[in-house]
Each structure stands twice: as structure tokens, then as C-alpha cells.
Design a protein around this nucleic acid. Structure first.
Lengths: 230, 230
DNA sequence: GACAAGCAGATTGTCGACAATCTAACAAGA
DNA sequence: TCTTGTTAGATTGTCGACAATCTGCTTGTC
């Protein structure tokens, strides 16, 4: 028999597709923080009944990017400076852990995948596709979590990723200028291939801090302004 | 005007109550790992239509204690030794982080709350209410997370708690013997009130390891046996 | 007896309609 | 003018029925 390993076939429920659509809309900033999601309107736009839409919304509420108030509505989460601070502060510690766990498990497949994802970021950067750039950068970053061989750690990272992506998208959207062309991940990738684990951890921490300061100042600005309604 | 601060009134949707009911059933082991949840049967038992039940199930799927396969059904998650290992290994690192963050924020209210929750555990222990004992012990443990002033850290803990509670319940259910009468949390509470942070962290780590070994051996046993169907 | 096709029953996914609740505007009274 | 009661409209929550899919059994063929 052939040694083909088939990937699982796609979810064929409307619910799953709705989740993907909504998540994308939120993470790319098409749906703004605080905005209310009108069930009837969205279900009509998607040509879907409210049942699967509502189920999809429940999932995203649990995922942490929507929030629901009974009989009032479901809203995109607000973003405060403290939320961003909390997420990044937490992320830094998780990163150290992930690097520590993944470190002894690095192999050729790891290095190959590292390069592959690095290339994906560079491609998105060249094409000036900011959304894709954020997405690929997070995927590059997530490799250490996938390699750390801890399901809970990985799951926690994936949850956090949603919000990080949203924060970055907001940021990009706000400053609205072309993305830095230079390759900021060069050092990160090189250190992950090297022999000094502490150095890799240190860089991950400092590298994150870099973008972080910019994001924070943006978020602080946000808090002055009133939130947008429906 | 009076200075009463009213707490938010309870969720009055069926969905919220169903979530609570199902979660309780799972975390106490009434619903066993791998077991299928028949929507029609459950909705009839609860005198509720399938719509809110299904929405509740989506929430619990995202919470990580149910798993769903399209057109096949929704099941209580299986518990493997690695799952437990991952959860505890992750929990240990999180504990150190939480203690570190909460440490400088300890105040009288913290100590009072610590005592209050400690008392709750002791009460449940005296009354031989194993379910409540697990619940209160986790709440005692969770105080450092609530005090760490990081929303992401707290949220991650709360998610993890569900599964920890499930693991413990399974364990208790399996060995089926009266709970240890002595107070295993005495030292933990004392150290959290003291001045040596490192000692508190060390104890948290070692204390967890204690129960952990027992749980693991139980989980390894589970894996031999076939999973129960519906 | 082994195997594939097809059928029946059960279960999940989706739909459209109704009930419960909220919001905002307006009117009435102190 | 401020507060309170009322009402209409819109929106969310829930329901019962139908469609799509899966599973296991039966049947027929070799």
C-alpha cells in the first residue's frame, strides 16, 4: 500500500466556517473592538440561519475575543493597555518555558520548519501584506510551542495568539504606515539554531519588549477615546 | 444615597444553567471520560430544547472538557497519562509565576481570604465531602492567581482548573477510599504568609508532585482499559 | 462464507417562527 | 425640570420541525 498520510478532511459544518470567517474579521480589525454583532444582520449576510451563527459566537466567546451579555448582545472585546501588558508579560514567561522544553527536542525537522516559516514571513513582508505578515510571524514564533511537547502549553499559546494577532492588527491599522522592511526575525532564528539556550531566551524576551512598547503607547491612546458602538 | 455595592444579578438564561449543570456532571465524574452526550436525551431530561443545550456544549468544548466530532457527537474528553503530566508540568511553572507576581501584593485582605478558603477545605474534609474538598482545595490554590494581577494568567489558571478538578475527581472515584484527614495545606498557607518566597515556590512545586505521582499511576492504569462508549 | 450495495433507524446540523427581554422615546405627574 | 410609568420597536433566547449525515443491519451476489 502507498505510504501517503492523508490530512483530515475539512470540517463540513457551517458552524466551523462561520467561526473561521468571524475570527478572521475580528483578527484583521474589520470588526472593531467594542462593536456589537447583530445576529440577524450577520446571518442574512452569510446566508445562514442564526442557530449555527450563535453556536459559532459561543465558541469565540470562550476563545476570548468576543464577550456576551445576556439579552444585550455579543461584542468584540475591548482592548485596554492592561490587557496588552498582561498578555505580553505572560507571554514572556511562557516563551522562556517553551524554549526550555523544546530545546533538547530540536532536530532537522525543527530547523527545516523554522526556515520554512521564516521564509513565509519574509515573503509576506516583501509583498507588504500586513495581515499575512502578522499571521506568519506568530506562526514562526509558535514553532517552539509546537515542539515543546506539552499539550497544555501549546493550547494556551494558541489561545493567546488570537489576542496577540488582534493587538498587532489594531496597531498596524492605527499607525497605517508600511511595515518595516528589514528582517527582525533573523537573530531569533539564528539563536534557536545555536547552542546557547539562555541567549535565545534572553533575545525572545528583549525582542518582544521592542514591539511591546509601541503597542502599549498605542493602547494608552485608545483608552482616552470613547469606544465605538454598533 | 446608600453605599451598598450590588453584585451583578445572576445569568438568567437556560444556556448558563445548562453549562453549570453539565460542567458539574463532568467534573464530579457522573459523566465518564469518553462518554457520548446524546442531545435529545439530555434535552428531554432537562426539559429544554436542543438549541441552548448545543450552545452550552460549544462552550464546554472550548473550555476543553468536551470534544466534538461533526455528525458523530460530543464526548467527554479522554484522560491520558500524558494529559495529566502536561497539565501538572505546566501548572508547576505557572505556580512559581503566580507566587512571584502575587508576593509583593499580599495584604491583610489576602491573608484573611487565605484563611477563609483554608477553613473551607478543612470543613469539607471533616464532612467527608470529597467533591467539595477538591473544589475548595483548588479555590485555595487559586488565590495566588487572583492576586497576581494578570488577567491572562488568571484566565489560564481557571481553564486549567476544570481539568485538574476532573482528574482529581476521577482519581478519588477510582480508589474509592476516605480522604486523608490530616491537613496537607497547613504548610502551604503558612509559607504564603511568611517572608521566604523561594521556599513558598519550592513547597508549591513539591506539594503538587506528591499528589501527582498517585494520579499518574492511576492514569497509566486507565490507558490499558478500553474506553467506555455511550 | 466473504464482500459490496442498499436500506432503515438514530443522531446531529440547520432552519424559520415564536417568546422573553431590553432600549429608547414619549407622556404624565410631582 | 426631574422622575416615573407606558409603549413600540428591535434584538436576543428558545422552541419544534426538517434536512443531512452516520451506523449497523440486511440482502443479494460471487
Amino acid at each position: 500500500m502507498g505510504k501517503v498520510d492523508f490530512s483530515p478532511i475539512a470540517d463540513t459544518t457551517r458552524r466551523a466556517e462561520i467561526v473561521a470567517l468571524l475570527r478572521r474579521a475580528i483578527l484583521t480589525g474589520q470588526l472593531e473592538p467594542g462593536q456589537k454583532l447583530n445576529e440577524l444582520r450577520i446571518s442574512e449576510q452569510m446566508r445562514v440561519s442564526r442557530a449555527p451563527l450563535r453556536e459559532a459566537m459561543r465558541e469565540l466567546v470562550q476563545e476570548g475575543i468576543l464577550t456576551s451579555i445576556p439579552y444585550a448582545g455579543t461584542f468584540v472585546i475591548e482592548v485596554t493597555a492592561k490587557d496588552i501588558d498582561d498578555a505580553y508579560s505572560f507571554n514572556k514567561v511562557m516563551d522562556e518555558l517553551a524554549i526550555e522544553r523544546a530545546w533538547p527536542l530540536r532536530d532537522q525537522r525543527f530547523y527545516d520548519e523554522l526556515d520554512r516559516r521564516h521564509e513565509a514571513v519574509k515573503l509576506a513582508t516583501r509583498e507588504l501584506d500586513t495581515t499575512r505578515q502578522i499571521e506568519t510571524a506568530l506562526q514562526l514564533h509558535g514553532l517552539i510551542y509546537e515542539w515543546a511537547d506539552n499539550s497544555v502549553l501549546l493550547e494556551t499559546w494558541q489561545r493567546l495568539t488570537s489576542r496577540l494577532q488582534m493587538y498587532f492588527a489594531l496597531h498596524q491599522h492605527a499607525r497605517n504606515e508600511p511595515v518595516p522592511a528589514e528582517d527582525v526575525h533573523e537573530t531569533y532564528v539564528r539563536l534557536l539554531k545555536g547552542k546557547d539556550m539562555r541567549a535565545a531566551q534572553r533575545h525572545a524576551r528583549e525582542h518582544i519588549d521592542l514591539d511591546f512598547e509601541e503597542l502599549l503607547s498605542y493602547a494608552r491612546g485608545l483608552e482616552q477615546r470613547p469606544s465605538r458602538g454598533a
